[in-house]
Design a protein around this nucleic acid. Structure first.
Length: 733
DNA sequence: TCATACCGGGG
DNA sequence: GTGTACGGTATGA
């Protein structure tokens, strides 16, 4: 019986590894932090590869071992130097990892054994520049936060500034260098400026004068068609907090945007007196008030340090499991980046042959179920959903990759589901804010990441070694089955189904029901589901406006309004319309139809009296054409934003965002403070066609016409508003 | 109108 | 040897 914990954690107990660097020569350097002190160790390893045939492979100096089982990749070859493996490297079927991963996989070592996140020596750095283009702009200042928490800024002549940064990094000797968008901005900018200035950028722990590169999907490119890369500093881990933010937001989906300032504010990391300077004003402010820029830059590195600690735990925890460098696990996709390396290590540890990567079978992959049962307004809403539906189904029905003869993926999922519950419980038991709690929560989040991507791994086609579309289809089929069963059994117990999506369902309960009744019906249905599939009551709301699939508004029992979907939240939507929509839905969901009408009339009146500003009616447009490109298309199709810019004879840059509105007489203008010369009729029309229309499902056609009748036209046959009731209508399918 | 391509960030 | 956990927006047919 293979040891599943070895599959999960590796087996070599060596503690304190904070960085690994390996060369094709078979030489590995391992940096370990033991009792706070850094130790550098040198090790030899035999570079290896796994191949599917050895007829032309056997030659002197090459070790060959046959692996067990029926996988095609059954010959493990190794040598004292990777150059001896050159002849197998170019075969498309060969499994050959980067040297550092070869070392970690075969040694069974991983990063950070016995270390906590706070044991790392972490340093943050942030560039302030005159602009975004290193070909044209230059560095004004570099803010640095040292491992001891002190922050400083480096200024002066640019070449000198880069030299002093390098000296600072080498003197402080951090294990980790962090910043927000480090790989997307600071490092590429620094590399290009250092090259232009002829300064050596020796940021690593080896004596190399510059940085190395690795391919990375979310990296930078040096030009059209050039591959995307990220930089590597041997001996240190280059960590981008933007990666951690993106990963965090995938799980929570609660961040309004991913910029440092916004995230820091959202997570409560920003100080009340946080200095703020718009990016394009930095150079100007630096010339007039450099102290302000210093405060700003120091705040940046402080926030990055806080953010890295708050959101960097999962990557730290993953590095204790998977045989890859910490910085690779920080930006890796979970299927190819975490699970595949775990499986490869498990197979080699078990001495078992691996299957070949298979191109996509062409078998279409059927996805999740989505139903809209009813649209309009409903009250006493309950949301019930299944936690971790897909991995639960994989475990319950033993759905794993057909070619995974060891059953390693299912074994990992199973073990992680249990260990995660333990980690969650330990986290809850630890004091709030303690390092112990941080450790357990980070571990739990890392495990959740792996668990939830096990299904994505199956469906990943040619990208993952054990992918299996049939198995993935079986998971979604079971998922649809569970959702269907849930809906049927809920409906049979007297609730009104509204919308169901993948693993959750919204429904309305009868007027007489108490909260206990709601919980009971969820528990009753939960008991009918397959064991291992846990249905839970996820939320309760006073009312819901169901508009279209994935587009709805909820009113919580405390009166808070939640709007979901493009129909209700769009960055381009004119602010006056959004404000109307919120006010109208707020009234609608308490059954106050006259209030809806009042909100509508108030918006029209505000437009007509020009109480609103141009800013209120303007739409936000991102410019995607150059002035030349627009000039070419202008004869065929005119666009408001560019017309406004031309009318003001102002140039623009692609990517710029502007607020534009239609002026009296049909012209276009950029919104600016105080302007009110907007086309009232146009915006009154828009209010009805674009915004009021989103309440159409809530009324019969006749009632809708009454509620949103033109205030100037006296209807002849009209019903009193007080008698109109919002409706709920059944949808087909 | 509908599909699909692209973006998210940094000064 | 980069990578199929999304959701909004911009674009083309």
């Amino acid at each position: 019986m293979p040891d599943h914990d070895e599959w999960l954690w590796g087996w070599d107990p060596t503690p304190g590894i904070v960085s690994v660097w390996a060369e094709p020569s078979g030489h590995a350097t391992v940096w370990r932090r033991v009792g706070g002190e850094l130790r550098v160790e040198h090790a030899r390893f035999r570079p290896w590869a796994v191949v599917d045939r050895i007829d032309d492979v056997r030659r002197p100096g090459l070790g060959v071992r046959e692996l067990a089982g029926d996988g095609e990749l059954r010959w493990l070859v190794d040598a004292d130097d990777a150059r001896r493996l050159a002849h197998v490297r170019d075969r498309p079927t060969t499994l050959i990892l980067p040297p550092d991963e070869q070392y970690l996989v075969r040694s069974g070592r991983t990063y950070f054994r016995g270390l906590g996140f706070d044991d790392l020596r972490r340093m943050q750095l942030d560039l302030e520049t005159t602009g975004l283009d290193p070909g044209r702009d230059r560095i004004l200042m570099i803010a640095v936060r040292r491992p001891d928490g002190s922050a400083t800024t480096i200024e002066g002549d640019e070449a000198d500034l880069v030299r002093r940064l390098v000296a600072e990094v080498r003197a402080e000797d951090p294990d980790v260098i962090e910043n927000h968008n480090l790989h997307g901005f600071d490092l590429p900018f620094l590399v290009q400026r250092a090259r232009a200035l002829g300064v050596a950028l020796a940021l690593g722990r080896t004596d190399e004068p510059g940085l190395r590169q690795r391919g990375a999907r979310r990296g930078v490119t040096s030009g059209d068609g050039e591959p995307r890369i990220r930089y590597v500093a041997p001996g240190r881990e280059l960590i981008d907090t933007l990666d951690a933010v993106v990963r965090h937001d995938f799980a929570t989906r609660d961040l309004p945007e991913h910029g440092l300032k916004a995230v820091a504010r959202h997570l409560g990391l920003a100080g009340a007196d946080r200095e703020v300077i718009a990016g394009d004003r930095i150079a100007h402010v630096y010339a007039t008030d450099p102290e302000r820029v210093r405060r700003y830059a120091r705040a940046d590195v402080e926030e990055v340090a806080g953010l890295a600690r708050m959101l960097g735990g999962p990557a730290f925890a993953l590095a204790q499991m998977a045989p890859r460098r910490y910085e690779r696990l920080a930006d890796a996709g979970p299927a190819t980046g975490v699970i595949d390396p775990l499986l490869v290590r498990a197979y080699l540890r078990a001495g078992t042959a691996l299957p070949l990567h298979r191109p996509g079978t062409g078998e279409p992959h059927a996805g999740a179920a989505l139903h809209l049962f009813a649209s309009g307004v409903a009250h006493r809403i309950v949301k019930a959903d299944v936690a971790s539906l897909y991995p639960s189904l994989m475990r319950t029905y033993r759905i794993g990759p057909a070619r995974d003869r060891l059953g390693a993926l299912l074994a990992l999922v199973e073990r992680l589901l249990d260990l995660r519950l333990e980690a969650k419980a330990k986290g809850r038991a630890a004091p709030a804010g303690s390092a112990e709690r941080h450790r357990h929560e980070a571990m739990s989040a890392a495990m959740k990441l792996v668990i939830n991507s096990a299904y994505g791994y199956l469906a990943a086609g040619a990208l993952t070694r054990f992918s299996d579309v049939e198995a993935a289809n079986e998971v979604t089929r079971r998922g649809r089955e569970v959702l269907h069963l849930m809906c049927r059994e809920l409906a049979a117990r007297g609730v009104t189904l509204l919308e169901a999506d993948t693993d959750g369902v919204y429904f309305a309960v009868p007027e007489t029901w108490t909260e206990a009744d709601e919980r009971r019906v969820v528990d009753d249905v939960a008991a009918l589901l397959p064991s291992g599939v846990r249905l839970e009551l996820d939320g309760r709301y006073a009312a819901m406006l169901s508009h279209e699939p994935k587009n709805y508004a909820l009113r919580a029992y405390d009166g808070t309004l939640v709007l979901r979907g493009v129909a209700f939240r769009s960055s381009r939507a004119e602010p006056y319309g959004v404000a109307f929509l919120r006010a109208a839905i707020d009234r609608l969901l308490v059954g106050d139809v006259p209030g809806v009408r009042t909100a509508y009339l108030a918006s029209i009146a505000a437009l007509r009296r020009r109480d609103l500003t141009a800013h209120d009616v303007a739409t936000l447009v991102r410019l995607s054409r150059t002035p030349a490109a627009y000039a070419e298309q202008r004869a065929e199709r005119r666009e408001l934003a560019y017309e406004a810019l031309l009318a003001e004879s102002r140039g623009w840059e692609v990517g710029e965002r502007v607020r534009v509105y239609r002026t009296t007489g049909g012209g276009a203008a950029l919104a600016r403070d105080g302007a009110r010369d907007y086309d009232v009729d146009h915006y009154v029309r828009l209010l009805r066609t674009q915004f009021a229309a989103r309440l159409a499902r809530a009324f019969t056609a006749d009632d809708f016409a009454v509620v949103f009748a033109d205030p100037d036209q006296l209807a002849l046959f009209t019903v009193p508003l007080e008698t109109i009731r919002p409706i709920l209508r059944r949808e087909e399918g």
